[in-house]
């Protein structure tokens, strides 16, 4: 369990550090890459917590998403490289107060309750993936199908919003 605690703590700190870096750098491309680092560290936490399938999926999905995000940054930003040191923040004090309050409330909720007995043994990766597949095709089929329909709706909505209007 010690290696697990150390790995979760290490990758957790890495995820938080990269998360803070997202909003500290003036280069938008660096922000996107920092978010990729944070999400990859979250994926590594999943691996450390023996959720192998989710960990690999998280790293692969986020690598794609953040690359697309970086491309959009370059397309839509006046200064994607951050050379002009533009300040793109507002209501800083309120935001810091809200962020700190949210984090402290979450930490208190993590520390206060007794979470009950910890389960030591976990099904192996092959068993987990098999069970997840069966779950998706069985009991959670409606949820899975709803997610599919939601993706379709979002694709249509995003395309129709983004498409140029004909006069």
């Amino acid at each position: 369990m010690t290696w697990q605690l150390l790995s979760v703590a290490f990758f957790g700190l890495l995820a938080i550090w990269f998360g803070v870096t997202v909003f500290r750098t003036s280069s938008m491309v660096r922000s996107a890459l920092s978010l990729l680092g944070s999400m990859a560290a979250v994926g590594a936490m999943f691996l450390a917590m023996q959720a192998e399938f989710l960990g690999v999926l998280q790293i692969m999905m986020m690598a794609t998403e953040m690359t697309i995000m970086a491309i959009f940054m370059v397309m839509y930003m006046m200064d994607p490289g951050g050379l002009g040191q533009m300040d793109m923040t507002h209501q800083k004090r309120v935001s810091v107060a809200a962020g700190v309050t949210g984090a402290l409330a979450g930490i208190l909720l993590a520390l206060l309750p007794g979470w009950g007995p910890i389960v030591r043994s976990v099904p192996g990766p092959a068993r987990q993936t098999h069970d997840l597949g069966i779950e998706l095709m069985n009991r959670s089929m409606i949820v899975f199908e709803t997610a599919g329909v939601a993706i379709l709706v979002a694709m249509i909505a995003a395309t129709s919003v983004a498409i140029a209007r004909r006069r």
Binding site: L5, G12, A15, F23, V100, G106, L111
Partner: peptide, 16 residues
Amino acid sequence: VALVVGASLFGVGLYG
């Protein structure tokens, strides 16, 4: 530790 990491990430995201 994992829950504390989650709470801290949430706080950073909320700030952003």
